[in-house]
């Protein structure tokens, strides 16, 4: 209950790569077979520039470096909220790079709030991305 009110902790940045193959794999794993995630024709028919990543793929990917940083317990994530600012176009035959940077606020009793900044080609993909971690599931060196 007497966690020191230390400064915010910078975490990362981490670099991630996304390919069409990753979208296909996520479609199968999640059951989300919306054709805008595999067919350029289907995407353009609804005025998208081409195939875009599942927002849930982006959301699922960018939390992983934080889990690893926090000691590798996925159950430490109590809450996780994002707002998708823009779609992530994933062209055929090329990997798209994402950069994830995070700032952890000083822990409060029972919760540690972390804000994520996710960019691709210099543009923010997520308008808000915030995770709440359970400090009791994080090794003491990280909280």
């Amino acid at each position: 209950m007497s966690a020191p009110a230390g400064p915010a902790t910078a975490i990362g940045p981490f670099e991630l790569r996304v390919t069409r193959g990753d979208l296909v794999r996520y479609a199968g794993a999640s059951g989300d077979f919306n054709p805008i995630h595999y067919s350029d024709d289907a995407a353009r028919a609804v005025d998208l520039p081409g195939v875009i990543a599942h927002g849930m793929l982006t959301m699922g990917l960018v939390i992983q470096p934080l889990i690893d940083w926090a000691g590798g317990d996925p159950g430490a994530v109590l809450a996780y909220d994002v707002r998708f600012a823009r779609p992530l176009a994933v062209p055929d035959g090329a990997a798209v790079e994402l950069t994830v940077a995070a700032r952890a606020a000083a822990p409060e009793p029972g919760r540690m709030t972390v804000n994520l900044t996710v960019t691709s080609a210099g543009q923010k993909l997520l308008g808000k991305a915030q995770a709440v971690l359970d400090p009791s599931r994080i090794p003491s060196g990280r909280r």
């Binding site: 919306n34 805008i36 609804v46 927002g55 994530v77 109590l78």
Partner: peptide, 17 residues
């Protein structure tokens, strides 16, 4: 129309994993 759907916001609040 599912083909016209894009995701705007998402949140999870876990009571337990």
């Amino acid at each position: 129309d599912f083909a016209r759907v894009v995701h705007a916001e998402q949140s999870f609040h876990h009571h337990r994993p």
